[in-house]
Amino acid sequence: MFDLFTSMPEQAATWSADVDWLNDLITNLSVFFTVTLTGAMIYLGVKYRKKSEDQEVAYITHNAMLETVWTVVPTIICAVMFVYGIISYKEMRTPPSSAIEINVDAYSWRWDFTYPGGKKSTNTLVVPLGQPIRLIMTSHDVIHSFFIPAMRVKEDVYQGNYSYLWFEPIKLGEFHIFCAEYCGLQHSAMIGKVKVVTQEEYEDYLVDRKAGDAPQLSPAEAGKVLYTEKTCNTCHSLDGSQTLGPSFKGLFASKERKLADGTVVPIDENYIRESILQPQAKMVEGFSPIMPAFEGQLSEEDIANLIAYLKTL
């Protein structure tokens, strides 16, 4: 669309062009209304400027018809904008199940990334072109906000739970990552980059390891170790048999879970996290509250690894 009045960054995600189209639409309408109405104001102010002491003025107090029109028209415009906003936003909030999941750990003042194979990086997020990427993000201290202008995405990151973001890069290259929530002294230094590479380069990157490094477990493999080490296995089976606790078989695939109080909750990372740390917060229908709380006994990494493992079951 006509974009003389806008200046957006490169369009590096599938929806960047859609967002920019809507942004152009809103901006063009804004410029149109601002110029027209200001023009009308100046025109009327000049045309009816005081020319003589006894200038005739019209005694006009209101006009129901006119006022109805200019109430209804902005209402319609707003409703249309709202719907447009929802349509393009819905996609941004619905990650495909095929997405590559990367964990993001925010610290004051750096971003740590953990890839599915266990590879880690700091401040540089390497992603393959044309693949949906889903970020599972948590903070280890104050609030941060993960922002990639070229992908048109941003989400705040908190300590104590996960927030999510996804995008699909359509352009090779390097793009800014900014922290968008003020987080203290080095807030403006908490910047990194997304490096969009080809599928091959990405695969090479994941296995690229310095000689002599210990062989690395993937998060799911590390989670599998924890599953027995932390004795999850005594109550949560892997084969579907229900013992003292619900089985882990097909946990994430089942999407939803019915609780003892009748409510249905979606099964996502935050639900699992809470159920590990505070098992009594959401009791599954048909089970007794006997699981001990693991609050304080697992590191953030342990929790993320367990979740990665549960997703494979």
Partner: peptide
């Protein structure tokens, strides 16, 4: 008018 950019969810994700 610029409030509209910020009220619209998909543009606000960028502008926030």
């Amino acid at each position: 008018c610029t409030g509209i950019h910020l009220a619209t969810l998909s543009t606000d994700a960028h502008y926030h």
